[in-house]
């Protein structure tokens, strides 16, 4: 058991976790932040993507103790009060989701992308988002959503 001090979506969290806990389970079961999903469990699908100190990670391959001393951002922290983040708005506007199970991961990954490249090219979007699988949309509208969000925030 270890005590983990972290900041989750802007809130200080101090929690005791067994050493062998995965970050995805810590978030979902212990903190009840179930917006982060788990699917492949091997780092391929990206459904479990969260930002650790601003950097995207697969929470299914990350030990919860790695969050000690770090900030975590999850989908639950994207909207400001009730105001959606421009990416969230764009995903709705452009139809960048269907079943929605991949969507939290897509949005977290896209957030990290726009922080590094506020105006990404289509190729940059594709390369960056390659690790986030979506079985429903065929990706076209996800690309469109990210482009649309980038355009909206550019001015």
């Amino acid at each position: 058991m270890r005590t983990v001090h972290t900041t989750v979506n802007g809130q200080r969290v101090v929690a005791d976790v067994p050493d062998n806990t995965l970050l995805v389970d810590f978030l979902r079961s212990q903190l009840e932040l179930t917006g982060t999903k788990e699917s492949c469990g091997v780092g391929v699908c990206g459904a479990c993507s969260v930002l650790l100190d601003g950097k995207p990670v697969s929470s299914c391959l990350t030990l919860a103790v790695f969050a000690d001393g770090c900030t975590i951002e999850t989908i639950e922290g994207m909207a400001d009060d009730n105001k959606l983040h421009p990416l969230q708005e764009a995903f709705i506007r452009c139809g960048g989701f269907q079943c929605g199970i991949c969507t939290p991961g897509q949005i977290m990954m896209a957030k990290a992308l726009l922080e590094q490249h506020p105006r990404p090219t289509r190729m940059q979007i594709k390369q960056w988002m390659m690790g986030n699988l979506c079985r429903c949309t065929g990706y076209y509208k996800i690309i469109e959503s990210i482009e649309s969000a980038a355009e909206g925030t550019k001015s």
Partner: peptide
């Protein structure tokens, strides 16, 4: 879509 807000916020 009506389910948009639920799905993009987790």
């Amino acid at each position: 879509r009506l389910d948009g807000p639920d799905k993009v916020t987790g």
